[in-house]
Simulated scan of single mutants.
Amino acid sequence: MDAVARDRFIRGDGTAADAWRGSAALAGVADAGAADLAPPGARLVVVAPHPDDEILACGGLLQLLADRPSLLVAVTDGEASHPGSLEWPVERLRAMRPGETEAALACLGVAPSVLRLGIPDGGVTAREAELADRLAQLLAPSDVVLTTWRYDGHPDHEATARACLAAARACGARTLEAPVWGWHWSAPDDGAMPLAHARRLALPEAVLARKRAAMACFASQVLPDVSRGAAPIVPPQALERVLTPFELFFHDPARPF
């Protein structure tokens, strides 16, 4: 079943991590090394819809390419993650979440250049064309642009991916897309993920440990909201699905490996 034809809702607990671990289709995805994903001489440009997406999507790859030039484009500041919260009002989130990213990157031991665009959280779709134009001004043909999956289930993730794809295709850069919430709404072996155009990057134990530690820096996302009695925005079961000994990336079928 194609992702385009599916309802992509992020609700409930989603697909269990154990189910993904038992997926024959996922186990059959070809492996790739960091240098295969971003060849020598290529700059890695990570375009994150929200603070923490850069860690969830490619915190391992960032570590493995720590000696390379890299750029993190923060599309939004993630200020809309807790609507109606007294503990996490918009002003606090806007001030705090960029600092969470800085702490997480330090945890990984990486220091990419960071560009913050300040597009409103939840408003990327409305400014998708603008985002594509801004990215086009930043990119070079030798870049590898890494972002969230174009069918990830979150409107900001999907709009960011479409903008990245448009900008990269315009200049000849390569793209890689990583599922973040796609692990939640899709199910093993249902055909929703384009595994025929995927590669798996194995993460050494120490790399995965630093990725886990980096995610702990996002207190706003991984702790409950006491003021509303609400679960974390990124609950333990979501972290378990994503913090695995590998990262999964989809390449543009028009630019195969």
Rank of each mutant, 00 (worst) to 15 (best):
A167W: 04
L139K: 15
G84E: 01
P141H: 09
A170S: 12
L65R: 12
D152C: 03
Y151F: 14
L146Q: 04
P155M: 01
L72W: 06
R94E: 05
R134T: 08
H157R: 08
G78I: 07
D121L: 08
L65C: 06
E102Y: 09
S70F: 03
A170L: 03
D133R: 14
L56T: 12
V114H: 08
E158W: 04
Q137N: 10
E158M: 02
G109Q: 06
A163R: 12
L117Y: 02
G122F: 06
L86M: 03
R162L: 04
A74R: 13
T147R: 12
A80G: 05
R127H: 13
C171T: 15
R162K: 13
S113D: 14
G78P: 12
V124G: 07
A57G: 10
R68A: 04
T147L: 03
G122P: 13
R94H: 15
C58R: 04
G60E: 02
T76R: 12
L115D: 07
P89H: 07
P155T: 00
S142F: 01
E100P: 13
E79Y: 02
W88H: 10
S142N: 11
L131A: 08
G99S: 10
L135G: 00
V124I: 15
R68M: 02
T76W: 08
V90D: 00
L165K: 05
R169H: 08
A170I: 02
D52M: 12
V90N: 02
C171Q: 15
A80D: 00
T160N: 10
A129N: 09
S113R: 15
